[in-house]
Amino acid sequence: MDIEKLLLKVLNDEASSKEYAALESWKKESEENIKLLQELQTKHTDIQDGYKDYDKNAAWHKVESRILQSEQAPQHKPAYLKWASLAAILLVGLYGLFHFSNQEPAVPKEYKSAEQTMQFALEDKTDIWLRDGGSQLNVVSDFEEERRVALIGEAFFDVAHDTDRPFIIELDNQDYVRVVGTSFNLVNEGGEFDLTLYSGVVELHMNNRTITLHKGDRAKKINGSLVKYRNNDSNITSWKSNELVFDNINISEAFEVMEAHFNITIDYNSRTNNLEGCAIRSKFTNENLEGVLSELSDILGFNYKTVDGKVLIKDLACN
């Protein structure tokens, strides 16, 4: 008998003594079985009336950026500066005529992307693309001696060349990236980062060590350790260019690229299907998920449907 049918009968008080015996032996199989049964037997009437699902990812971003800001805020600001800035705000607010830019301490600027990729230039003409979905860049210095910013999330940097004022991106703890002029993609999330260099040279400062990266290098911090290798993924900046390039890669890799690009989950039966030799060569520009899926399904002859934000791939076979 199916365990599910058995569980159903037990939960509905319809089980026979024989079935209860079967349940007992199932319970003996693992600790988890016992816990699950207890879980299912508890009445959770509250869930229906009012247990809500708050967005913990958005909340985490808020808390983390608050932490980041408080860590970067000057510890002991002279009191007169506070009064000067307060006075400045009051006066500007009242009259809107005076320019206090000389006396005012630099106010940190924050950029945060919403549903769209956000592009802007900093005052030094550094171009920045912030990935959609709540990536955040904070400008934390006045750019007088050095250009210092902090990133949470993912961004592409095209840093304006200026040997006198190094460009510094704070990552986590004491780690940072130091740049003179170059372009690169950087992801900094949850204490891990992923840096891919497209031109020039950058220095990565991590745990008081300095690692120099050259054009085409990629460095990742995963679980506290650093890996450096030559980048061969042509789709890292697909979020920015809106271009997906499948250059003779296996369909399973293509699905991975699509998952990262469209921020979705793709389910396909990788175990039951032999996907070897299932290579794909194609290029998509400004195409949405549906467009890419429909073309891939034409090429490879599979069926697909979207359920609950997940894409289910069926009948995937490579001939």
Partner: peptide, 14 residues
């Protein structure tokens, strides 16, 4: 800290 946050945020808000 993040792990604890993720596990507790929703129930604490409720």
């Amino acid at each position: 800290f993040k792990t604890v946050f993720n596990a507790h945020y929703v129930p604490l808000c409720n």
